[in-house]
């Protein structure tokens, strides 16, 4: 294990904004699935090496439909980072992002690194979410904003790299408690897990 860090990243966003395409493009470099190697795109992992540090990203996709909205806290507890995806041609999806940010801040405080992704940047013509407003909003909540296109494979590497770097900084700040070495993780989670669990269910 050594100094390898494991991070949990949740992927939040309304249905149809392209969460799945985004993460598939990043982890498998695929857009149109011709040669299927995975059955699923809901739990993917990626290994990185950033500045000599080995980093494992566990990327958790979440169900984005409104009916499952209340389940959010169960998904994103203990996560180190969150990627909030919206569709630049869909104003509603951006509003959803704002809701999630509010929730995340309430539940996890500032411990979580946030990235907002304006996906489908290849459809610039049909843009309805103003670029200025989106970037301004991101800055106001301490998140980075990226334009991504899963179709053209743009901005995705940068997004994950930036997020990883910020999670590493965050982990260093806390003295490495987020590393998944067994010992530290056990101490951290011992009293957290059961409580958060019961809180999430009720």
């Amino acid at each position: 294990m050594g100094d390898s860090l494991t991070f949990k990243i949740v992927l939040l966003g309304e249905g149809c904004v392209g969460k799945t395409s985004l993460v598939l493009r990043y982890c498998e470099n695929r857009f149109v699935d011709k040669h299927i190697s995975t059955l699923q795109a809901s739990f993917l992992t990626k290994r990185l090496n950033i500045g000599g540090k080995r980093v494992n990203l566990n990327i958790w996709d979440t169900a984005g439909q409104e009916r499952f909205h209340a389940l959010g806290p169960i998904y994103y507890r203990d996560s180190n980072g969150a990627i909030l995806v919206y569709d630049i041609t869909d104003e509603d999806s951006f509003q959803k992002v704002k809701n999630w940010v509010k929730e995340l801040k309430k539940m996890l405080g500032n411990d979580i690194a946030l990235v907002i992704a304006g996906n489908k940047s290849d459809l610039e013509k049909h843009r309805t979410v103003s670029a200025e407003a989106a970037e301004q909003y991101a800055a106001s909540v301490g998140a980075r904003h990226f334009y991504t296109s899963a179709k053209l494979s743009k901005g995705i590497e940068e997004l994950f790299l930036d997020l990883s770097k910020r999670m590493i900084t965050e982990a260093d700040k806390r003295g490495g408690t987020s590393t998944v070495g067994r010992k530290t993780a056990i101490v951290v989670d011992d009293d957290v897990a059961p409580k958060a669990q019961s809180g999430g269910c009720c």
Binding site: L11, G15, K19, T20, L24, D33, K34, I36, T38, L39, Q40, A41, S42, W60, D61, T62, A63, G64, Q65, F68
Partner: peptide, 13 residues
């Protein structure tokens, strides 16, 4: 169909 990677949007239901 085979060429389909399921996302959480479909998995959870």
């Amino acid at each position: 169909g085979a060429s389909h990677a399921a996302s959480a949007d479909e998995f959870l239901p």
